[in-house]
Design a binder for these strands. Structure first.
Lengths: 209, 209, 209, 209
DNA sequence: AATGAATGAGAATTCATTCAT
DNA sequence: GATGAATGAATTCTCATTCAT
């Protein structure tokens, strides 16, 4: 409604993709009507099907392209670093920065991995799992270098870290939803990320460091 | 197991509730068909409606009764304790024990808060939020007692902890799914809980202890 | 509208099947709306899907069950006969009798074999082809017994006979349609069958016999 | 072949018409997509609408022009002949020759009369019916001349002959389709035509000739 | 004249809920 | 209380046709 629909041709695919992301995030994949996506993108319903085979294909493309971009970015940025701590920090600050820029991109994090894996099982590459495994790789590296404790179970730890990150984003969503009556709580993604880092660095206790 | 509802008549409500829990966790609320719940419970579809008004009512009852029981239990157990660290530990070991005893009961953890909040928005009481706030209460207490660092953002930390816990359970579910090809990874809930505690106690680095 | 819908349970499948046959014949498979079949059968649209997986499945079931019945009947009746001429005669008089009884059953003959073969290709047994091949078997037998000419190409002849039979039925349909202005032509299936037999017996010329 | 419309500009109409014929025969009118016709003709979908008003108009033009040409040709050729047997022979050998020369032109035989009559009902001139009635005229003539038996029902016989001819062409189509497993059967249009003539001349039995 | 992306009316199908038995 | 067949509103997707370039 507010957007201009007369952008350059070829952009339409992106417009639709973003409209889908926005509505999927707002209402969840199953509750999102194709007509809503079309309305959000300011195109006819049929137009969606000129670019994507089905509603599911739209979700798939979203995961693939959005996550793919993030992951490639992260890989590039951390390849030059040695310190696993730095890698984790860069990894998440990258995600945080992306999330500040593109609100909806962030929330795709919240589409449950379990659910999405249902959809992504068909594909050899599951981008979410790829992201999570990137965490594990870093943790493993840290263990080898003696930076992380020897008994760290990286397979569990990666899920803890990923879950925690999801928790932060959920915190943000809830802080804005009507479900939370406490309106005084102003969420800061930046501060939240700091919290996450601190907790994983030295636990809840927080030594004199 | 397959044909007779071999339990006392009054148990049927519980059977249905557990069947609903199981399928909601497995496939997500919107993707769960009422017929699936009925099949899982070994009753006719119509029978569900003798005990619950609607599919949504089933989810509501689930949250109310299952979470309610867990929360009451936790509250009782931790009320006698002073140390917030102990409280957190007791809180989670209780959940872990529940998980081990009643697989489906504990899986309510995995029905995503965001998902449920979409559906439960109309209701003032959201048991999941109640549980999460219980964590915050403990964290606040710890801050006041000087046990946790002063700058700990409890509103974010509670979500991090909850998200991390979800991550562990998700890890277990995924470890059992065909999606994870690495069959050598035998998940241990016990070890995972230890990991979680250690990480929140002293971070990924781990003290020389 | 005219039928009673309160027939014995279990009959509903047949009611739907017959309604489908009637409407498929009336408007052709692709032009038939599922809603029309439902209306014809006096059931809700959803009810169809309790008995058949899809609209195509309905067509498949029709072919299978209707043709299957005819073919089994024919096989049984002609197995006792020796004379291939008699076999052909019995074969077609059986079809004629059936078609006089069930108008719609007859017209399924007219659903183009080529079209139907598209749908039936998935199945190992294609009933129409089965019927046509039954003709060939009889012709081959006649050749071996020296009744039919040695140079008769049975593979072509079977299609000629089948096509001719279709022609007769088409003749009947057209004789009743508005497309044929000549209303004085009263079609008789019986007379038509005689014509077919005579032509195939001794050609258009018709010897003094 | 693939990119350039390498024929004179005015030919485009014919190219489209032939593409339509080909696809209508292959898949039937209702199952044929306009996009398929366009692809077959190597033009854009929109281009079709510069030459024809609608998909139905395409079918109409097809019948009118293709059948019209065939019928005019036949009329001219048989007007000089006296013997009805000769006329029939010339009629079909003409069709056979057309079939051999222009595969798709002859396939118009296979677009079922019933189908077309549905669409052509509104029109006073139905070319297919015109062709079939031409057969009847010849048969009537033969009866009058005492060549065909007195009791020959020409209204039925014309459909039998037309149906039989369709059967032959269908035989050819099927012999080329994957549906027929018997790969050794090499269809010969010439031999098939001979078979048809022989059968209608002297029946299946065949004189000692 | 040619294009092919955009359109949207219309179709098949799903599934929570009802209700007669 | 239990059943499960019947329901039909609501949804996804198709495809002939249009029209700006």
């Amino acid at each position: 409604m507010s957007d201009k629909s007369d952008q350059k041709s070829g952009e339409k695919r992106k417009i639709i993709l973003n409209a889908a992301l926005k509505t999927f995030v707002k209402r969840g994949y199953p509750e999102t009507r194709v007509s809503e996506i079309a309305a959000e993108a300011n195109v006819a319903e049929g137009t969606l099907y000129n670019y994507f085979q089905s509603k599911e294909d739209l979700l798939l493309a979203l995961f693939d392209e959005k996550w793919g971009g993030i992951i490639d970015d992260i890989r590039k940025k951390i390849s030059r670093l040695d310190d696993p701590n730095k890698k984790l920090k860069v990894m998440f600050s990258l995600v945080v920065r992306l999330f500040k820029k593109d609100r909806h991109l962030a929330e795709i994090f919240l589409i449950d991995v379990k659910q999405s894996s249902i959809f992504l099982n068909n594909y050899t590459v599951n981008r979410v799992v790829e992201f999570i495994d990137l965490i594990e790789t870093i943790l493993e590296e840290g263990k080898k270098k003696g930076i992380y404790r020897k008994d760290l179970d990286t397979r569990v730890a990666k899920m803890i870290i990923f879950g925690a990150a999801q928790g932060i984003l959920l915190s943000r969503v809830l802080s804005e939803s009507a479900a939370v009556e406490n309106k005084t709580f102003k969420f800061s993604l930046y501060r939240a990320a700091i919290s996450l880092r601190d907790i994983f660095k030295s636990g809840l206790v927080g030594e004199k460091r």
